[in-house]
Write a protein that binds this DNA or RNA. Structure first.
Lengths: 231, 231
DNA sequence: CGATATTTAAAACAGTCATTTGAAATTGTC
DNA sequence: GACAATTTCAAATGACTGTTTTAAATATCG
């Protein structure tokens, strides 16, 4: 075996980039190797030569896109780990919205297409890539919620916050693409504004959930204390 | 032309129901007429005989599903039109969550598949069916927000609230379906609880947005008043 | 140069599926 | 009960899509 040439790295890279584009745009099934090769300026046999199969290319393109997206927009949003939780939440929300809206990052759209049409990679990627991100958010949320709030409520909060970021971006990408805007709440420069909105909206929501839980706790304590209490 | 037989209505109905199932499950492209006919217990030629084409069947199945879903879960959630806005919001959120989670209602899944892979019907259905629902929610939200809040903020609120309902249900349907639950925040009987969470979380968020806007308004007024005011 | 790596165009291969057809069965009506 | 229209059926049509392989040509490195 001779040393691999430099062409290899170049072509592989171009295929990976083109595959990222097309897979994110159309999903696994609706993407053709022909289109990927064309966009990469390579021959139709290149994918099988360099990657072995469409499946393998898909998997590598997804991981590649994910890594790039996390590198471009670190999950903490540039906020220091010892900053107050409100600011860390802001950082995470900004980072998430930027990851999604960044036109050079396809990782989110892979995810979106997988949720619509799972290929089998989904569960693996969710466990390895998504869960750590969600847990990071959940832990900030728990900090803000205090100790009286139960686990289910904390999950609900985290889910709701992330959903506020994800769903509007998905809808926007579909409905605003025909040139005309729908009822146009969203331009690209609104994303910062939307992030601020989500943060203040959610902080208030969190505070309310916390207040309810603490009131419940106090009431229960008073009650049981009157009856003699419990060890 | 003789009078149409009774078979016609029966077969048409069975095809419509089966088409609803399969289209919602797989989307337009991945659905085959063969499968629809099979599930309906009809011959493969039945679709073309009764509807003319796959496209027409798709369109009719979607509208049928939409009508059924609105009928089963009216948008106001059974809350009177003169009830306080907090309760009306609760009703709308409950109705939305029930529409989505009801296993006999496919309308939401048509929508979901269309957003992933638009067929051309999407924009029409959004304009005719979705927009009225969103406006209904937006108007309750505006009521709760008061007059100081600008249009963009109101949109952000409405978007966020609806997103909190939609996104978790989508994710749940994909990740919990392999038998194993993921990190299992969601069982079916939790939907009422989640609805209550979304309502109290969002009411607090709305109140906060309102408070900020009103504070801003007061500050501006004081300032301009000091400088002589404006008519 | 020569051995190996890469690119290429073309072909092979392996399907998929909506729609049509013409005959057979069914049903409402006279 | 027979006619005529309606509906069902199995099979065929016909057109299309797209991955992977092949074998020859070309480029590159040592």
């Amino acid at each position: 075996m001779k040393t691999p040439r430099e062409d290899t790295a170049r072509t592989r890279g171009k295929l990976l980039a083109a595959a990222g584009e097309v897979f994110a745009e159309k999903g696994f099934r609706d993407t053709t190797i022909a289109e990927i090769s064309m966009r990469a300026g390579a021959n139709i046999a290149a994918v099988n030569y360099h990657f072995g199969s469409k499946e393998i290319l898909y998997s590598e393109a997804w991981r590649h896109a994910f890594a790039k997206s996390l590198q471009a927009h670190p999950p903490d949003g540039g906020v220091a780990a010892d900053a107050p939780p409100e600011q860390r939440l802001m950082g995470q929300i900004m980072a998430l919205l930027r990851r999604i809206s960044d036109k050079d990052n396809r990782a989110f759209w892979f995810m979106h297409r997988e949720i619509a049409n799972p290929t089998g990679l989904l569960t693996e990627v969710v466990r390895e890539e998504i869960m750590p991100l969600r847990q990071r958010t959940e832990s900030v949320v728990r900090e803000l919620l205090g100790l009286c709030v139960n686990k289910r409520e904390a999950r609900f909060c985290e889910m709701g916050i992330v959903s506020q970021c994800i769903n509007p971006m998905v809808v926007r990408s579909r409905l605003n693409q025909g040139g005309k805007e729908y009822d146009g709440p969203f331009r690209i420069d609104d994303i910062e504004a939307y992030a601020r909105h989500v943060v203040s909206f959610s902080l208030a929501g969190i505070a309310a959930v916390r207040a309810v839980a603490e009131a419940r706790r106090v009431k229960r304590k008073t009650k049981t204390a009157g009856k003699g209490g419990r060890p």
